[in-house]
Structure formats: C-alpha cells, structure tokens
Amino acid sequence: MNLFYHLGSLFLRFLRDCGGIFIFFWQSLLATFSRPFRARLFIKHMEFIGVKSWLVVSLTALFSGMVTAYQVHHALVKFGGQSVLGGVVALTLTRELGPVLTAIMVVARAGSAITAELGSMRITEQIDALKMMAVNPIQYLITPRLWAGVITVPLLTAMANLIGIAGGYVVGVMVLGIDHGIFMARMEDMVELQDIMSGIYKSIFFGAFLVSVCGYKGYYASGGAEGVGRATTEAVVISSVGILIFDYILTTLFF
C-alpha cells in the first residue's frame, strides 16, 4: 500500500512539475511581447549564460572530440575502415555530443546559478517586492534569461562542434597517423548541412528547456536555505536527465 502511495505521489508530482514548467515557459514567452523590452538584462544574461560558459564548454568539447576519435578509431581499425574517422567524429559531434554536452555543461554552470539566485530572491521576498512595485517578475527575471538561453546555447554548440572536431583531428591525424587529406575529405563527404543544423535545432530547444526548468525551480522555491539547495539539485537533475530524454525523442521524431 505504501509503495503504491509513494509511486502515486511521485507520479502526481511529476505531472505537476511538467505542467508547471510548461505554463512557466509559456508565460515567459508571452511576456516577451509586453513592454518595456529589457535589452540590457538580455545582454547581461547572454554574457552570464553564454560568454562565461565558453571555457567549460570548450574543454568538454575538446576532450570529448579527442576521446571519441580514439574510441572510434579503435572500432574502425577492426575492419580496416579508419579512413572514415574524420566523418564519424564530425557526425557524432555535430548530431549528438555537441548539443547534448554543451547543454548539460550550461545546466551545470549557469542553470544551477539561475535556480540558486531566483530561489534566494524568492525566500527573501524580493520576487514579491518586484510584484509590489508593479513589475511583472516573470517578464523581468525570466524572459531575458529565456532568450539568452535560446540564443547562446546554439552558439556555444556551434563552437563546441568546431573545437570537438579540432580535438578529433589532433588525435586522428597527429597521434593516430590518419592522413590529413583523407580525414578532411571523408568529413566533407559524410557531413551535410542538415547534420549540423539538426544539432543546432536541438540546442535551441535545450536552451529554452534548461532555462524554463531552472527558472521554474528557483522561482517557486520554498523552505528557506535548505529549500533553495533542494530546488537547485532538482533543477540540475531534471534539466540534465530531461535533455537526454528529449534528445532521444527529438532525434527519433525529427532528425
């Protein structure tokens, strides 16, 4: 009985969170069209979510590209197909690893900070204070972050693709001895614009998703400092797992 009760309440909580996050996203999106437009905040959040994430995303992409080249080479060499290494590494990065790893690193670096900041504003009544000054808190706090996420995550993804491929090139050509010309030619043969764009489209979705989840969890945090900590953990877990689940669903359906 207890097990059913526990599972049921978990399921209800899951449904409530799903609905809440979607409504929150929708409200933030609609608030885009109400004045005043918050260009300065938008640029500030672009810097925080985008510019300040470049290093962590670059390092992740570089080493992922390098290790992918090693592992793929290990598999290809078994049937003498190592000449396609460049193409396989580029496809893996542009279609999957680039967008997914970038989004997860942005969750870890910027998403958690968004939840913690909003959560702390909530428990110190700063969000209510915004309301009391006749300012729509969602339009002020969330909408600029939402657009900053939607714009910067794909840009970071494009950068991650490039750096990851460079990492793969270093390992493939300089360490494993694949010919430069073959590496580049196979990459050009195998990777089409559509492959790159599918990753970029997914990253646009991930940008909106991670800001919605992290924003929602912080905005509705309760229970003091402990509550903010809990909200931050939940935001990071839901965003990261959600990105992987949606990656699978989007890839199956559209790409």
């Binding site: 110190t124 009544e125 700063q126 209510d128 204070a129 309301k131 009391m132 000054m133 006749a134 729509n136």
Partner: peptide
C-alpha cells in the same frame, strides 16, 4: 486581473518584514 493589480499596486505600497531590498 494581474494586469489590473499592477495599477493598484502603484497606489498601495507594501513594506516587507525584512525589507526585501534587491541585494
């Protein structure tokens, strides 16, 4: 509605217990 409240809140101020200043 929430929009109508925004007008009312310009006329009714609220001082929070801890001040709720933007830190």
């Amino acid at each position: 509605s929430e929009k109508e409240w925004q007008e009312v809140r310009k006329k009714i101020g609220y001082l929070f217990q801890e001040g709720a200043l933007f830190d």
